[in-house]
Design a protein around this nucleic acid. Sequence first.
DNA 1: GTCTATATGTAGATAGAC
DNA 2: GTCTATCTACATATAGAC
Lengths: 202, 202
Amino acid sequence: MSRKNTREAIVEMADRLFYEHGYEHSSFADIGDAVGISRGNFYYHFRTKDEILEAVIGRRLEQTAALLAQWNQESPAPRERIARFIEILITNQAKIMRHGCPVGTLCGELAKLDHPFLPMANQLFSLFRDWLSRQFVALGRADADVLAMHLLVRSQGVAVLANAFRDEAFVRREVRMACDWLDGELSREPVKIQASATSPTV
Amino acid sequence: MSRKNTREAIVEMADRLFYEHGYEHSSFADIGDAVGISRGNFYYHFRTKDEILEAVIGRRLEQTAALLAQWNQESPAPRERIARFIEILITNQAKIMRHGCPVGTLCGELAKLDHPFLPMANQLFSLFRDWLSRQFVALGRADADVLAMHLLVRSQGVAVLANAFRDEAFVRREVRMACDWLDGELSREPVKIQASATSPTV
DNA sequence: GTCTATATGTAGATAGAC
DNA sequence: GTCTATCTACATATAGAC
């Protein structure tokens, strides 16, 4: 390898292959061949497959945090920031139609495998959830987390169905509907959440 | 096996294991052990793993069609029928929180594997889509398919996030929000869909 | 129809030369 | 750091006895 950092090259390729073909379906041979190294060399950098998965999730967590920080910088207004989240469905449309959402599909696969790194992968969702929630808080919403989760619901649902039906017009339409929903919500007065139960014993 | 039909027992167990642990992660040994037959006997009934997958998808297609027919019988009003679709998120809540939506996770996995039976699995989505669309048509909506797809978006998004966060209150709340959305939609006048493009050359 | 035994391929993982 | 050779485990799949 002429690369300065083989380890980085492995993680980058594993990240891509895990997304495109799934974690379980991506073998050491697949990753090694794609990077251009032997399996033996592979094991010099990672002793187990779980180690690679951990590195990939760590990388995604870093990149997601960086993306959100970038959105914070580029869009001062919370309303615009939320819109950028919704629009990633358009920005990454081609990949989402082919492979689904990188976060949703990884968490789904690890849940099926009952994998110990599932909680770590779920932190990817939490990054978006908490960031969205902060934007709604900044807009004075008491039900910020409810709205944040609802936007996650819409984006995940669109990703799943975009992957199944591969219909660009559908994605654009749902993005428009989500933006309309956002406008509608933000034109209301802030609403207090009702307590979920009155009995203290439950 | 004391069962009358071993083949049926295999398909039934494979259906369950594919749902709980994924298609690729469920081996012949797993299925055979769970049913209580040897691997040799297994191959008497199914020559390849794809054959079992085909049988499982076929079974799900039949059961889904039967479920929709049952809803048609039990609920004459389209509005109530649509509500029943939304409420499967509550009915199957425990399973969805553990393993996600059976349809969404199967289609997602087969998409990753680029599996030839992906189109067949996607028909599961189409069954719900078309059925929902017919209900909205019965309610006089010109944009019936748009509304049907939107309900699929919501249910798939809730399933993905219920699987990740395992939060019952979240599921109940989103179901309520979906019902509210439905009420809001059905209290409007029917809306014509705009043509997606004016140019006939595109 | 069901079983045991076995063939064959491929996965993850290791040892040791260079 | 990188390679080749190798090991072990397990997956799909087959053959043939009962």
